[in-house]
Design a protein around this nucleic acid. Structure first.
Lengths: 242, 242
DNA sequence: CGAATGTTTGACTGGAGTCAATGAGGGTGG
DNA sequence: CCACCCTCATTGACTCCAGTCAAACATTCG
């Protein structure tokens, strides 16, 4: 039973820009169905050109790139509200792969309809650019982290960013959130080795700043983490949702 | 004497997507003037919301972010054809600063006209998203470099990417191009120290793969560099130009 | 000529990687 | 019900790539 855009539970969250009634009905026409995939399923492949685009309704995943020697770079964590396939939609080719980490529920759109969709409502073209810019903004910050922060700073930064993002999406409160990833995933996101990542997380745990286990994160002292991570507590900026 | 979009010398280069006559005249209406700035001039500031957007007609620059402890991450090198201020234009805030490295000639647009511009021609909204996606794509690759490649691989990767980009813009040939940056800039782009960057460049020079001095790069063996850098020789994908 | 900027070297240090082994659950097939 | 396996977290010992420090060069410029 597909969710109607009109009743989309995500759209109301503070993280997302409000949509007019017309936008919503336009969106609804563009939506061709809903897809549920199991954990571990690949959704989009680096270098490919998917015929479909997705918005994450529920669940979490990973965006990643592979290097010829087998190393993996996690480019971002996928949260509800994320739009998948934009690069393929506009450039014709994905720069990274996307896979499901939990069970994922996705709204499905046809890439071939994208152009008609935008023509019908030019504002959506603008918002597509907005979405891409949000991702670009994040990647610049991530690049700065991997390039300039120490391991301790990087991990503290990651906890802060992840928590604030989840909180703004309405899937975290009281410092508690679901985080169904492995230490290896965080290590690959920050360009650190698994062992060093583990020891660094341990340090933060022993200082009573965070807890992480059983797929859940518990932030005990967000402010202290932000200080260590050389970052701020500012809420993620509002973004459109497709 | 402002360049007419109709006669824009950049637009014809293979790197850029063709534009219809109508697109060009639309573009021309959007363009409010031309700006020439001296080397070292800041163009856009991280965190700010510029009232103007720019397309680089001529010259080179840097996109960078600063960390509270004084470290700098160079997010990308700015080449002719690059669009500056997109993040401010759609999200309302720049994620990085942009500064001129050489004398820069910029086409100037009013941010306040951006919306009217897109409404008049929805395809340009799509292309704005395309531009942002190109940048997102690059940043994912850069993140992978900084996170996963060794110093030698990173620097080889950078030379390959930079040369191919310049070549596709028509500002490089026979392995030779202008590159008016300091080793510190490359070090900050790759998350390496100046000293280590210097020694690593030295290694590549001694292997006769590349030359760099007097603001010029000479690629002697692109293929070998690509192999070391774990990357391919594929030409940058076509992108729109604003 | 002295000051400034950028490149190059050498010596030393240290943060993070690698290797390897042990724990700690969670399944599952006999 | 339990032995065995598999995945992931945790530790300790050791190594090494890259960072830091410091000084020498090379150019340019006022």
């Amino acid at each position: 039973m597909a969710t109607k855009c009109e009743f989309c539970p995500l759209r109301r969250k503070s993280l997302f820009a409000p949509m007019s009634k017309e936008d919503v009905s336009n969106m609804q026409r563009f939506k061709v169905g809903e897809l549920v995939v199991d954990p571990g399923t690949p959704i989009l492949l680096e270098g490919s050109n998917s015929p479909q685009l997705y918005t994450v309704l529920h669940g979490m995943g990973l965006r990643s790139r592979l290097l010829s020697e087998g190393q993996r770079q996690v480019v971002n964590f996928v949260f509800p509200g994320d739009f998948l396939g934009l690069q393929a939609g506009v450039m014709g080719e994905m720069g990274h792969s996307v896979e499901a980490t939990t069970k994922l529920t996705l709204c499905v759109f046809d890439r071939s309809e994208l152009w008609a969709f935008i023509k019908a409502d030019p504002e959506r073209g603008f918002e597509l650019a907005w979405l891409a810019a949000v991702e670009e903004h994040f990647l610049g910050e991530a690049l700065t982290t991997v390039g300039q922060r120490t391991a301790l700073q990087s991990i503290a930064w990651a906890f802060v960013r992840i928590y604030l993002r989840a909180h703004a999406s309405g899937i975290a409160s009281d410092g508690k959130m679901r985080f169904p990833f492995r230490q290896q995933d965080l290590a690959d996101a920050l360009g650190l080795s698994l062992v060093h990542t583990n020891k660094t997380i341990r340090t933060l745990k022993s200082r009573q700043l965070v807890g992480w286990g059983d797929d859940n994160i518990q932030i005990h002292d967000l402010k202290a983490l932000a200080k260590i991570g050389l970052t701020t507590l500012e809420t993620p900026k509002t973004r459109p949702i497709m």
